[in-house]
Computed example of a mutant assay.
Amino acid sequence: MSTDFQQARIALGQRLRELRAEGGFTGRQLADRLGWAQSKVSKLETGRQTATHDDLKAWAEVVGQPHTAAELSARLRAFESGTRSWRRQLAAGHKPVQDTLTAEYERSTVLRAWQNSTITGLLQTADYARHIFSAFVDLRQSPRDVEDAVRARMRRQELLYRPGRKYHVVIWEPTLRALICPPAVMAAQLDRLSGVIGLDTVSLGIVPFEASLKLPPANAFWIHDERLVIVEDWHAELWLDQPDNVALYLRVWETLAGAAVYGSDAHKVITRCRRALGTV
């Protein structure tokens, strides 16, 4: 969980504690009035649990300050926008998430991406994307709109051919060998990667197995125009726009990119991964 998120949750908890004290309630008394376990009140006040908007409204009403509900909800929305849980994002399926990302890509002229587990969406084939979406639909038990999501992702790839944009993509070699799809699908995906080498809008780097790494190849992330970083984790995406966070991820990206090979050397790595599949 990001430090910014946790600090904001702690600050909200402090505000809740102030309102409880102003209302003359102990933690146990407030819990009894709300019909909650006392531990929930404690966790909310210490920033160990995230309140819902309904929780905040009920809290404000019970302590006799219903007018503060709007303030509390505004605080919650502010840090919810930075941490976007998959459960909440995928409530209507994968396509709306893809549409939101496409809008962000439309705004961006320079993108830097680090991928350590899957091929970045901008360079995926439709078959590869279909297997990725299907896997996450099963994992997260979200609405099964796989084909709509694939079409939305493929439409975003039109940005690769617009002049004035640059996509700097760095991928770890194990990503090119991970059989999260049938070998034939992976073979076509590797052929697709070979085909984008030399495209004037794309700089594709591959970090080989044998490369010396100055940093661990941790979570995938995308940097949009040095103004926004999107980091992907199992439970959520983090959308980070604080300058110090963006600067940190830029340093991470530059370090990992420095270990990559490009051009004909990148093509050689892709070719050896392709041969390892044993497909025609």
Rank of each mutant, 00 (worst) to 15 (best):
E226P: 02
E22A: 11
I230A: 08
A260R: 00
K95E: 15
H168Q: 14
F221C: 02
L179W: 03
Y249P: 00
S108A: 15
L240N: 00
T50D: 11
F5M: 06
V150E: 13
V150K: 00
R151K: 12
P182I: 06
R151C: 05
P216N: 14
G258C: 04
R17S: 12
R162D: 10
L215A: 11
A188N: 11
G263K: 05
V269A: 08
C181R: 09
A178T: 10
L190E: 01
E80T: 05
T83P: 00
G13M: 00
R151M: 07
E61V: 15
D99Q: 12
H67T: 12
H267L: 11
R140Y: 13
R87A: 11
Q157C: 10
A103D: 14
D55W: 05
W114V: 01
V62N: 05
G93D: 03
L248A: 12
V110L: 15
D54P: 01
Q7G: 07
A21Q: 10
I270P: 00
A135R: 08
Q65T: 11
T68Y: 12
G27M: 06
V137L: 01
D127P: 01
N219D: 12
A260L: 03
H224S: 12
F136V: 13
L213W: 09
I171W: 08
S142Q: 06
A21N: 10
R107I: 10
M154A: 04
L240W: 00
T279E: 09
R227G: 08
A152W: 00
L72S: 01
R155I: 07
A259E: 03
L228H: 04
S117Q: 13
R192Y: 03
H224E: 08
D244R: 15
A58E: 11
D148V: 03
A266I: 06
P66W: 15
L159K: 04
A266M: 01
A184K: 10
P66R: 10
L111D: 01
D148H: 11
I132Q: 10
T279Q: 07
P143K: 05
A69Q: 07
W253N: 01
D55I: 03
H168W: 13
A78S: 12
W234N: 10
A37E: 15
P143E: 03
A211Q: 05
E61R: 11
G205Q: 00
P208K: 04
S134L: 07
S212F: 14
W36L: 04
F136D: 10
D148N: 07
P217E: 06
Q189R: 05
L72V: 06
L111V: 14
G13I: 07
F79D: 02
A178D: 11
P183R: 12
I180D: 05
W36Y: 13
R20F: 09
H53T: 14
V137M: 04
H67V: 08
V246L: 09
A260T: 01
S142P: 07
T255G: 08
S108P: 02
T271M: 03
V231I: 15
M1G: 13
L193V: 09
R9K: 13
T118A: 10
